[in-house]
Amino acid sequence: MKDERLTERSVDMKDIKIAARGVQVYYGDTHAIKDVDVEIQDKTVTAFIGPSGCGKSTFLRCLNRMNDTIDSARVEGDIRLDGEDIYDPRVDPVQLRARVGMVFQKPNPFPKSIYDNVAYGPKIHGMARNKADLDDIVERALRRAALWDEAKDRLQAPGTGLSGGQQQRLCIARAVATEPEVLLMDEPCSALDPIATDQVENLIHELRQNYSVVIVTHSMQQAARVSQKTAFFHLGHLVEYGETGQIFTNPRDTRTESYITGRIG
């Protein structure tokens, strides 16, 4: 009993997982993110909402340095994961991406078997001592992504043969298999039907027990359903950031209000 209260309290304390200060992103001459400050809490789902082209995906990709793979992108400012500057030259972006996993807009399973898709990260990072260990990791990841029951009899079938929703859950399993601390999701449901969306949203609830989840979404209902914190981006600015309930019922900024009531965006 005592233990339970302790864990509850540690959730309640809401440690800050990622702290961003004065972040600027440029694509060539375009100023895509303008001076964004945000603090993302541990074991919380944070939603980024805003109209298309407002920079929410760009900002998300700053958090695991995926923007490094785009030649013209330049990031300034200070982003700390557990107090450590992730843009410090001593930080290995590859190691960082193992700690900050990512799920993309379109399901992108590798053209390999379901098993190999999930085992991909653990193999690269040498997380398994032997085959049995790897089997365990794969099973755990698939269970966490709520795909185990559907996939356990066809682990050697190609991942690309699954349905769209299953593919996206496979990608989530692939991301959680490396035991990340933060999971970034870039519109993970935009290519899915309502049933698959529901499954992924339930999954996000589950994942919150262990991870800090940041989700970019176009659907305000989805943000309201899954997140505890919401950030509203507009034209590269972070306009408003706060408790999801407060943002949707009592926004402080008129732009936020216009967007969630459907007048802009």
């Binding site: 190691q95 193992a98 993309f104 379109k106 399973p109 590798f110 390999k112 490396t178």
Partner: peptide
């Protein structure tokens, strides 16, 4: 998107090429 997926789980560029792009 396949490269992104591989880089996103923390693979290096050459690991991505060897294990995802070339296959």
């Amino acid at each position: 998107s396949l490269r992104d997926g591989s880089l996103g789980v923390g693979a290096t560029k050459s690991e991505t090429i060897k294990k995802v792009v070339l296959p």
